[in-house]
Amino acid sequence: MTQIMLQGMQIFFLFCAALCVLRFILGPSTPDRLVALNVLSGVTLGFLVVRGVAEGRVLYLDVALVYDIFGFLGFLAIARFLRDKLTGKGDE
């Protein structure tokens, strides 16, 4: 039963991730793409954690932890870069 539930949650997170990627590709404007990227990062984190518990290995959880931290930093950098590009600041 436990394995069935964990498998179902993995499939569900993969489904959500696929829909987020679709939104990321279709998104008509830049904020839409950023929203899709934000949701996608959270969904991927959840998938990694569920996968780690389903396999019973600690390695996936370490990867999820580092993915969370660096994903946040990368997201911050992307948002900052896009904002500077839009407002014309940061050219000096």
Binding site: L34, L45, D62, D68, L86
Partner: peptide, 30 residues
Amino acid sequence: IAFRIIIIMILFMVNAPVSSFIVARFTWES
């Protein structure tokens, strides 16, 4: 595994609203 999940939960509680706020501010400023 349980302690690692708790640490990930704490980090996620900090990260997710902050990144949503960053997206909202970017949307507003653009």
